[in-house]
Design a protein around this nucleic acid. Sequence first.
DNA 1: CCAGCAGCCTGTGCGC
DNA 2: TGCGCACAGGCTGCTG
Length: 277
Amino acid sequence: MPELPEVENVRRTLNPLISHKKIMKVTVLYPNIIATPEVELFRNNLVGETFQQVSRRGKFLLLETEHFVLVSHLRMEGRYTLSSPNEPITKHTHLLIDLSDGNQLRYLDVRKFGRFALLKKDEVANYSSLKKLGMEPTEEDFSLEKFKKALKTKQNIKGLLLSQKVVVGLGNIYVDEVLYKSFIHPLRLSETLKENEVVLLRKNIIEELNEAIILGGTTIRSYHNAKGETGHFQEFLQVYGKEGQPCVRCGSLIEKIKVAGRGTHFCPTCQRLEGSK
DNA sequence: CCAGCAGCCTGTGCGC
DNA sequence: TGCGCACAGGCTGCTG
């Protein structure tokens, strides 16, 4: 489910719901979602802490307390809600955190792919999942020079962008949209991109993700922010989920193939597979 | 070291 | 209606 715009909207809606609230009790209903430390320690370390701000690195949420950072990844379908402890617990609820204001923060995840790691503050910088992440897709962090260097590989461009090791935040929907807007075929080898294509691709990545954040993210089936609201960017998708429909630029029918193991949508006419001569 | 791919889970939609 | 299969906003660990 969530790519960067959705995670950022969860961050923005979750932050005011939990910051400055003390953790009274922690209940883990599905232990496998806790990557580290062991569940007992996870609970004991969290109880008594007070949430500070919620921040984000790539698609990871960082729920900070005085001494720890709760690193949360929603993967495909993870979701937060704030409810009364009296509300019945559904079968897809896996973590409960009772707060000092009487509310209960809940983590729900149908596919159980999401993961939590509770780290001491000084361990965060060295945590492998965060350490290997690439640049944030902002004008300041996402350097054109670094991008050009990172593209010197024979990996196809879609796979490279999905890997999060060059620039973070793109998932299967936004990567298809961004490549479409940049006239680049998803199977194009990264090293064959020309200067003007790299410049356009970088600009489109930054703009696309920003616009999607402003529109509340993309809701195809399950995404909701921490207040239960859906996004609206799905109304502006041009290729994702549009197979068989005409390209708005040239009228060719949008095709769907598999790239990097993922369903991939593109226009066979406007998106170039070869570097221009 | 790196690219590629199963595995992790459950639900949904499709063809037969 | 039922069944089997493919597929779904992602990451990780193993393989060659």
